[in-house]
Design a protein around this nucleic acid. Structure first.
Length: 429
RNA sequence: GCCGCUGUAGCUCAGUCUGGUAGAGCACUCGCCUGUUAAGCGAGCGGUCGUCGGUUCGAGCCCGACCGGCGGCGCCA
């Protein structure tokens, strides 16, 4: 038994092989039948003929349905007429299951496709997406492991919010009220006092009633926290990390990128050094980017999309005004009113994929910012404790893995970049 | 929370303006076809037109209410 991809090579030509998988397409004539078989690796056209199989076997073969599972034995030949260049001449086959007609066919709406996601995962398109996602997740871990970071596991049921404004999912918790984590940042900060450099990939949940192309209520959040690092250092690390991920995808998934119609040259542009710009500089140049902004304006989806249509690779935007960022960001001692933070905006109109920066490490300063934000000090006692016992300068970041995947695959909606997206109206399948 | 759109066969849609008893393609079943490429040709199967109420001799179509769904913005990753 072998993978279909290993059959599609010149040295197998003329040999007899056994393959197994699912019927991807079937076309029948009265004396000839084409079964295109699919497995995890690829597809191959198999041909069965009446005079070679006999009537009983031939009828059994030609009455198969799309997605029926089977195994096939036959000899392989090069054939320009076959989709993947090789054809298997069927000498024997056995059927695991002949199913009824498959619900997913051509002419399906986006909504129906989402209802049938559990079946749609089998499509060549989603097969390619899942392979690319696997590479992205693996490459992220590989990068930080190689750099000597430790992967840690923060809790997902928590008692406090990280971002002030975000809405939290409530969960009953033995008579108390718990929330699903919207970011592991604060917990990651606790780990650095033991391990110094840490990262995690874990789900984050946001109960906002968002209906946009880049928001979902459950997403994979890759976060890192680095002891002794400043904003500049943090950006250097992130740039290397993104470069590593893109290089891995280009190395392992060229075929899948092609299946998805991704412009590979455009993606390769992002292997070059990223652009860097201060918020104030962006405001000055905003008119020339076709999106005039004034100082103090925040960047919405339309603004980011318009600005990033001017860039061929990612842009680090730094030094935002204090009012635009949440309480834990560290103000710049050299530039009053500005924050030592960065957003990484993806090119080709994709916008924000990372938010990060230096964290306030002075106790009094953090205490003041918590109070100013109208939050209760008691809820954050453990977070404040970190600034009480051996506090150090440190930075961190949060990366939306699904947004990164959406950009790398050049998709129009985050829901198409993940297998089971959760939105305000979707909890199934 | 705000703005826009939508609901007819298993799926994708037409029919609604101009009211007269339900259509196409795909899927499925049967038949034909010895090289198909989301094959083709012929026949068949398939619908309480989102729900409730109203107008009318007559409502998929007009009016009202309700329910469901989609897209976009804000929020951010």
């Amino acid at each position: 038994m072998q993978e279909i991809s290993t059959v599609l090579t010149p040295d197998i030509e003329g040999k007899v092989v056994e393959i197994r998988g699912w019927v991807y397409r079937i076309r029948t004539g009265s004396k000839i039948c084409f079964v295109i078989l699919r497995d995890a690796s690829n597809i191959i056209q198999c041909v069965g003929k009446l005079d070679e199989l006999g009537k009983e076997k031939f009828d059994m073969l030609s009455s198969l349905t799309i997605e029926s599972s089977m195994e096939i034995t036959g000899s392989v030949n090069r054939d320009e007429r076959a989709v993947t260049g090789y054809e298997l001449k069927i000498s024997a086959f056995s059927i695991y299951q002949r199913n009824d007609s498959f619900p997913v066919s051509k002419d399906i709406s986006e909504e129906f496709e989402l209802d049938q996601r559990h079946l749609w995962l089998r499509s060549r398109e989603f097969n390619a997406k899942l392979k690319i996602r696997a590479t992205i997740f693996h490459a992220f871990r590989e990068f930080f492991d190689h750099e000597g970071y430790y992967e840690v596991q923060p809790p997902l049921m928590v008692s406090t919010a990280t971002e002030g404004g975000s809405t939290l999912f409530k969960v009953p918790f033995f008579g108390e009220e718990a929330f699903l984590s919207q970011s592991s940042q604060f917990y990651l900060e606790t780990f650095i006092f033991s391990l110094e450099n840490v990262y995690t990939i874990s789900p984050s949940f946001r109960a906002e009633k968002s209906r946009t192309w880049r928001h979902v209520t459950e997403y994979w959040h890759a976060e890192g926290e680095v002891a002794w690092a400043g904003n500049e250092k943090m950006m250097e690390i992130e740039e290397k990390m993104i470069h590593h991920i893109i290089r891995a995808v280009l190395k392992k998934n060229k075929e899948e990128l092609t299946t998805l119609g991704r412009n590979i040259a455009a993606l390769e542009e992002s292997l070059k050094p990223f652009h860097r710009m201060k918020y104030s500089e962006l405001i000055e140049k905003s008119a020339s980017y076709g999106m005039p902004l004034k100082y103090g304006d925040d960047l919405g989806a339309d603004e980011e999309r318009q600005i990033m249509s001017n860039f061929d690779r990612p842009l680090f935007l730094t030094h935002f005004p204090e009012e635009l960022k949440t309480f834990y960001h560290r103000p710049d001692p050299d530039n009053p009113g500005l924050i030592l933070c960065h957003d990484l905006l993806a090119p080709e109109g994709y916008g924000e994929i990372i938010g990060g920066g230096e964290r306030i490490w002075n106790y009094g300063e953090l205490e003041g910012r918590i109070e100013k934000s109208g939050l209760k000090k008691e809820d954050y006692y453990w977070y404040l404790d970190l600034r009480k016992y051996g506090s150090i300068p440190h930075s961190g970041f949060g990366l939306g893995m699904d947004r990164l995947a959406m950009w790398i695959m050049h998709l129009g909606n985050i829901k198409d970049a993940m297998p089971y997206p959760r939105t305000i109206r979707r909890l199934k399948p």
